[in-house]
Amino acid sequence: MVEQRGNSIHLKMLVMAAALIIGAATTPAWASLGGDTASVQADQIHLQGRRTMTAAESYTVHEIQGTSGTVVREYVSSDGKVFGIAWQGPWVPDMRQLLGSYFDQYARANQAKTGARIRRGPVLINEPGLVVQIGGHPRAFAGRAYVPGMLPSGVRAESIQ
């Protein structure tokens, strides 16, 4: 027990150290889509990944190389908001972590019954405040999510990939 507690403290210190290195003031427990740059860092910690940044004209792409082939790309506007997320990997990543406060809307949309016949194809959620697309098959999935109203002007949804 004592040893476990020790590991836990050690882990917390590591997390704090990582936060300092990246220069973020706080580590939010949750959220990403719609969150700020610090929430990208929370995802990075969750995914135990390496992060690289690429600047585009009106946004920055934070690419998190997770373990076992999972890659997450987060699109952050110049005012520091995550307006889109794209990912790929053998399986669907933790959507609650990546969608944050949008997760419940996403889950509700998934449960909505449409049509009398079963459809076996991509997940295509297209609501006024949230777009989520998931495709692929077992052992190779990919998807994207974005908030249409948060796209920086001139940025097309297809850029999130």
């Binding site: 790929q88 194809g121 991509p122 990919a142 297809e158 990939q161």
Partner: peptide, 20 residues
């Protein structure tokens, strides 16, 4: 038929044709 999901060269799963 139905729509698929677009993507680019940086994504190795998307885009795709799903031949059902």
């Amino acid at each position: 038929g139905g729509p698929s999901i677009l993507g680019s060269g940086s994504n190795t799963v998307l885009p795709y044709f799903d031949w059902g």
